[in-house]
């Protein structure tokens, strides 16, 4: 990319950036969310990763595979989160982050649902990161097995197996809280 193109408002580069954001931001978010099960943090990481992509473009760097680059940066940011001041400071102006709506809108009277989700989040935290990742791709992004296999670079049969085991482990942990009785045998349902 020639230097300076990224600075031009409404430039093709800006449009390409917007398209990349629409195409990959949820996946980047899912990756960060699977690491920390923190929705707001995952969104911070997502926006930071895209901001850095823009800076790279502005500096004239040629990024061959933006999706892979974004996922790598997001993964590093998520890993660095615990040992850095990124959470407190970041590189964006606070007023930008404060403009992001906090948590999901939830009716105040839906206490049971709140409790369900709190329990589910706690149980998800107990799972291995790989289990959380595949569950996030499946249920947050509605990816089918083929897409997950492509994204994780594994076989489709491996996706089914890992997904089934992750769900089974989740169900067992929920049942230990008395909230879920795992179905015998068949495990995974045949969702698309």
């Amino acid at each position: 990319m020639p230097k300076g193109d990224a600075k031009t408002a409404g430039s093709p580069r800006r449009e390409e950036f917007e398209a990349l954001y629409q195409q990959h931001s949820r996946e980047v978010w899912a990756l960060a969310y699977a690491r920390w099960t923190d929705s707001d943090l995952a969104l911070d990481v997502t926006q930071e990763a895209f901001m850095r992509l823009w800076k790279q473009w502005e500096a004239g760097e040629d990024i061959q595979n933006p999706r892979a680059w974004l996922l790598r940066v997001a993964r590093n940011l998520a890993e660095d989160y615990a040992k850095s001041a990124f959470r407190r400071n970041g590189t964006q102006a606070p007023e930008l982050l404060s403009g992001i709506r906090s948590s999901q809108p939830m009716p105040s009277d839906d206490l049971e649902r709140r409790e369900q989700f709190a329990l589910l989040r706690a149980v998800l935290d107990e799972l291995a990161p790989a289990d959380r990742e595949i569950l996030t791709l499946r249920y947050a992004l509605d990816y089918d097995a083929n897409t997950i296999a492509e994204r994780l670079d594994i076989a489709v049969t491996a996706v089914h197996m890992r997904l089934s085991r992750a769900r089974q482990r989740l169900a067992e942990k929920l049942s230990s809280h008395g909230d879920f009785a795992p179905a015998p045998a068949d495990g995974e349902t045949n969702r698309p």
Partner: peptide, 11 residues
């Protein structure tokens, strides 16, 4: 857990 509507691109 996902924002709805999804936030715009940071730029």
């Amino acid at each position: 857990q996902m924002k709805n509507p999804w936030p715009n691109a940071p730029l």
